[in-house]
């Protein structure tokens, strides 16, 4: 991406400083390919975008496209291979920056079954971040804080001494959320927080994310593969494909009028829970399989499956550019295909 488009990216998001700005972020994993030889797996490859204070940015894309890695790298749970993350305009670079950043930025994990230590009580799971950051003056204060958090996420305070495995999936996810909120963050990366839950429980947890956002003035990066859930909760949505960001726009806009050929296919593939709409839906069928990120295609990463691919697509990487106000797309042929 050119520096000019990055300036636009930030400028377009109103005058004020975004809470998170990601600039040319890369995360490459070295993969052994033989005797002492390694090859980089480009899990996240040069993504740049900003998140405004108070908004929910949805992040979607198919399995393996780099969503989780992007979330973890932004939080510096992985050290970025290249690029920067700015929190309220300040780059996160030193160890000290990271420690400070973690008091403001936390993560809710996908799997409520495996992400909680079965030998810890609920109170200790929620209290652990408080211990790490020395965030209380007395045992009583710690206890009060834990009970307040449990109350916030709708857990019965009488259950504080129970173990996580005694809870249902929905309750476990609440424990995970209470833990993420313990340090009183203002930015939370939510990685598939409702995917493992039954639909009726899913709705309870989605509503809770909404309410907590209002009460605690939270900003979310909300990762999920269920596009209807993401659309429901997000203000804007970013779409990734093979480690790259291909489109970023307002949630309704991207859903109703996708511009990138991959987004078009993705949106048309969503099974809509309405028989009449489903019958009328014209699907964009994609040919072929998603390429391995170890052998990403030359040029546009989507050209092997794109119905509109031309020579230029095979030769050069399209820039992630603002094609309409507040709307970013990485496609050489965005004008022709729309």
């Amino acid at each position: 991406m050119s520096d000019k488009s990055e300036m636009n990216n930030t400028a377009a998001q109103s005058g004020e400083e975004p809470i998170i700005r990601v600039s040319h972020l890369k995360e490459y994993f070295p993969i052994n390919t033989g005797f002492i030889r390694t090859k980089p797996l480009k899990a996240v490859d040069d993504i740049s975008f900003s998140i405004r204070e108070g908004e929910t940015l949805g992040l979607v894309g198919e399995s393996g496209c780099g969503k989780t890695t992007a979330g973890r790298t932004i939080l510096h749970l992985y050290k970025p291979t290249e690029g920067d993350v700015f929190y309220r305009g300040k780059p996160i670079r030193t160890k000290q920056d990271i420690t400070e950043f973690r008091k403001h930025a936390t993560m809710v994990f996908q799997d409520p079954y495996s992400s909680l230590d079965p030998r810890m009580t609920v109170a200790d799971i929620i209290g652990e971040p408080l211990d790490i950051h020395h965030m209380y003056g007395s045992k009583q204060e710690r206890r009060d804080k834990i009970l307040e958090l449990m109350d916030r996420v709708g857990l019965n305070s009488e259950h504080a001494a129970r173990y996580a495995h005694e809870f249902s999936g929905g309750q476990r996810q609440r424990v995970g959320i209470a833990r993420a909120l313990a340090v009183d963050p203002d930015f939370v990366v939510c990685d598939e927080p409702v995917s493992a839950l039954d639909v009726s429980i899913q709705a309870q947890v989605i509503n809770m994310f909404d309410e907590l956002q209002d009460q605690m003035h939270l900003t979310y990066l909300f990762i999920a593969h269920d596009l209807l859930v993401v659309r429901h909760i997000s203000d804007r949505i970013a779409v990734m494909y093979l480690g790259r960001m291909v489109e970023l726009a307002d949630a309704d806009e991207i859903y109703d009028r996708p511009l990138h050929p991959y987004t078009k296919a993705l949106m048309s593939a969503v099974p809509v829970p309405d028989p009449k709409v489903a019958r009328a839906n014209q699907r964009v069928q994609l040919k072929g399989e998603i390429p391995s990120p170890l052998n990403a295609p030359s040029g546009c990463p989507f050209h092997t499956r794109c119905p509109y691919a031309a020579d230029v697509c095979r030769e050069s990487m399209p820039a992630f550019e603002e094609v309409e106000k507040g709307r970013f797309v990485a496609c050489h042929r965005v004008k022709e295909v729309n």
Binding site: S200, I201, A203, N207, R231, H232, A251, P273, D274
Partner: peptide, 23 residues
């Protein structure tokens, strides 16, 4: 209840109405 609790194309931005209680 099931129909009210799922996100659809028309209830975006509105609150979902979950089924209360546990299975």
């Amino acid at each position: 209840g099931l129909m009210r609790s799922i996100p659809t194309t028309s209830n975006a931005g509105r609150k979902l109405e979950p089924i209360s209680g546990t299975p």
